[in-house]
């Protein structure tokens, strides 16, 4: 299952998504917050129209590690929760599915924020 070519696909697909991001940065002078939001919404959209899961089955981490995957789990979480819980799922589904990532990011930011301090750019 984990043949070497899986890693090749992951590398190329993940790299390609970042490549597109870099083109956007150069062409539109987008800041990183806008880039993150754009790719996240792309993920939400892909999941909403049902395209994300087949791509994910092929690209694996290549599309799950980019923030597209984060957006897709928000949308997929909402869709699944709606099927299971109805209206309540609209509210709980998205964040429930991504709670791990958000909590981790906040927790580690807090811990490392306490430990370290910002340093002037040296380069």
């Amino acid at each position: 299952m984990s043949d070497w070519y899986v890693y090749l696909i992951v590398f190329i697909s993940g790299g390609f998504i970042c490549f597109i991001g870099q083109i956007l940065i150069i062409k539109t002078k987008m800041t990183s917050a806008r880039i993150l939001v754009t790719f996240e919404l792309l993920g939400v959209f892909l999941a909403a129209i049902g395209l994300f899961d087949p791509i994910s089955a092929f690209c694996k981490a290549g599309i799950n590690v980019p923030i597209i995957g984060f957006g897709a789990s928000l949308a997929n979480g909402a869709i699944n929760a709606v099927k299971a819980k109805g209206l309540l799922g609209v509210f709980t589904g998205g964040l429930e599915a991504t709670a791990g990532g958000i909590a981790a990011a906040v927790f580690f930011a807090f811990i490392f924020g306490i430990i370290f301090r910002a340093k002037t750019k040296k380069f």
């Binding site: 870099q22 940065i25 984060f70 370290f116």
Partner: peptide
């Protein structure tokens, strides 16, 4: 974008203002 687009960029964008 190589570090911004992956989830690492999201993490960095929370930790850097915290610092």
């Amino acid at each position: 974008a190589g570090t911004i687009v992956p989830i690492t960029g999201f993490s960095n964008s929370i930790t850097s203002p915290a610092l």
